[in-house]
Lab assay of single mutants.
Amino acid sequence: MPVRRGHVAPQNTFLDTIIRKFEGQSRKFIIANARVENCAVIYCNDGFCELCGYSRAEVMQRPCTCDFLHGPRTQRRAAAQIAQALLGAEERKVEIAFYRKDGSCFLCLVDVVPVKNEDGAVIMFILNFEVVMEKDMVGSPAHDTNHRGPPTSWLAPGRAKTFRLKLPALLALTARESSVRSGGAGGAGAPGAVVVDVDLTPAAPSSESLALDEVTAMDNHVAGLGPAEERRALVGPGSPPRSAPGQLPSPRAHSLNPDASGSSCSLARTRSRESCASVRRASSADDIEAMRAGVLPPPPRHASTGAMHPLRSGLLNSTSDSDLVRYRTISKIPQITLNFVDLKGDPFLASPTSDREIIAPKIKERTHNVTEKVTQVLSLGADVLPEYKLQAPRIHRWTILHYSPFKAVWDWLILLLVIYTAVFTPYSAAFLLKETEEGPPATECGYACQPLAVVDLIVDIMFIVDILINFRTTYVNANEEVVSHPGRIAVHYFKGWFLIDMVAAIPFDLLI
């Protein structure tokens, strides 16, 4: 008679799926529990143990900040960024110097990925580790590398530091407007667009060049630039800015003055950032001319202004700041037409079709709590990747769950009947059967004279019903998954307890 339990259901295979997918890609990662103190490590794979030199037993239950890997060259700011990422709910990448158990130093890129439950609360953290440099290539500990984003994938490793954006290309926007319009339909740009040429040739750093990471940081200074100062900065030398009595002219307006920039070969870094931020506020060169004239017309309804409409929906549905990093990277690809469009465009503009998908598509409701890094690593669709929660398995109709209350009560009843059979069957065979043979035949009273025979008949009927119930009862397979398919249940029961239950259900007393 089957006594099969499996009270692990309803099970959740999400954690096993993450481990299996990460292991298949030869990654070095740990999984931490966000619900406990210090976000203790609950799993670390073999790749991480080989990377740091510690065994799994030495890593388990330690804080996922990996303070046991810190050393003299470990930056405090990087460690603080990892700790801050564990307090938030967004994906974050941090470069930090770690030390192995043998004392060797290596520069590592740590990717902190939160995993949320159905309520939107962070319950786990996945920390992925990628070695960037070994100890002989690690720089000085005073050099802070965590304020910069990861290198873009479309640049060669040897040319990542030679990417320079020439400031004269930004200063000569109005001069290039006529050349853009003359391109017409034969050019790649839309009317009114501004073409910015980027020099990728390796050259020595000069005062006129600005690194790509500095251009990325310009967006942080746009908020500090007032509207009046932006307007004066875009007017140009024809209309000098008016300053109040006793007030000095704005240095932001002076930063885009061609006369002032041409007199000296070098520009201050602050002026460069502010000038680029001011130019980015204009949607095209037409807006710059309109600002000089004193009238700013409404933005025209053409394809170039609607190019950012799908980007707005993608940004609203993005799951991490990696989408913004990807957008900034692609927006700086050289030799393309940049349409400086305000994100607050007309909502009635139709979304044009684009061959290049900048932001990841909208994630469906079932995966809105899973970050983009987890979705990318697992390579699963929205119909396959579940949320991290207890999910009731989908069972067929008329199927009994093996952990249901009805099955528990039924098993206790069958257990009592088995005990009765084990006690009274030998007793009936030894004593009652002998008395029946010696006594007179009682054929007239039937079952009324033999109450134990009636009980034995009921017990046999219950055993037959138990066999039928076992054909529709779920079970737990070797992978700790609840199986509810009727065919698989029948095959599993035939290979197991079916023969024993059938022999126990045969009414031998009635056959004798």
Rank of each mutant, 00 (worst) to 15 (best):
L86Y: 01
G183C: 06
L256A: 07
L127Q: 01
R100A: 06
I18S: 01
F348D: 12
G224W: 06
V370A: 05
S206G: 12
S261I: 09
L385W: 07
Q84Y: 03
P297K: 03
V8G: 14
V131L: 12
R356T: 10
K332Y: 04
A9M: 14
L167K: 05
K21D: 12
K364C: 04
Y54H: 01
G306M: 06
V59R: 01
A253F: 13
I19C: 04
R77V: 15
C66W: 01
S239R: 07
A217S: 08
P361F: 05
T337H: 14
L225E: 14
D259E: 14
L324K: 13
G71P: 01
D259Q: 03
N369H: 03
P10W: 15
D342V: 01
P72M: 03
V132F: 15
E289M: 14
L173K: 15
A32T: 03
S261C: 07
T174C: 05
V138S: 13
L69A: 01
V180H: 15
G224E: 15
L349F: 15
V196K: 04
E58D: 05
V195C: 03
P72F: 01
D144Y: 06
H309Q: 08
T375M: 04
L378M: 09
P298T: 09
R164M: 06
R356F: 12
S182P: 05
G246D: 04
H254R: 05
Q61D: 09
Y99V: 01
E214M: 05
S322E: 13
L378Q: 04
C44M: 01
I358Q: 08
A142G: 11
A190L: 15
Q335S: 08
V279P: 06
S209D: 10
L225S: 01
D323S: 08
E90W: 13
T162V: 07
P150K: 13
S283Q: 11
V3A: 11
S354P: 14
V384Y: 06
E365V: 14
N117F: 05
T216Y: 08
R76S: 09
G6K: 07
T353Y: 05
K161R: 12
F340M: 15
T65P: 01
F29I: 01
A89F: 14
E91Q: 08
P72G: 01
S263H: 06
C66N: 01
F106L: 01
D46F: 02
F129T: 01
Q11R: 14
G139K: 06
N128H: 09
R5A: 09
A223G: 08
P72S: 05
N38C: 09
H302S: 05
G294H: 14
R181Y: 06
G224N: 06
G53A: 01
F68P: 01
V222Q: 06
K28T: 12
G184V: 10
D259A: 07
N220Y: 10
G24M: 14
Q61C: 14
W154Q: 07
P347G: 13
C49H: 01
I123K: 10
G120A: 12
M60S: 01
F340P: 09
A156Q: 15
A244E: 14
C49W: 01
T145C: 05
P241D: 11
T65M: 06
V325R: 12
Q11T: 13
V384M: 11
G149R: 09
L225C: 09
A34T: 07
R100L: 01
H7D: 15
T319W: 03
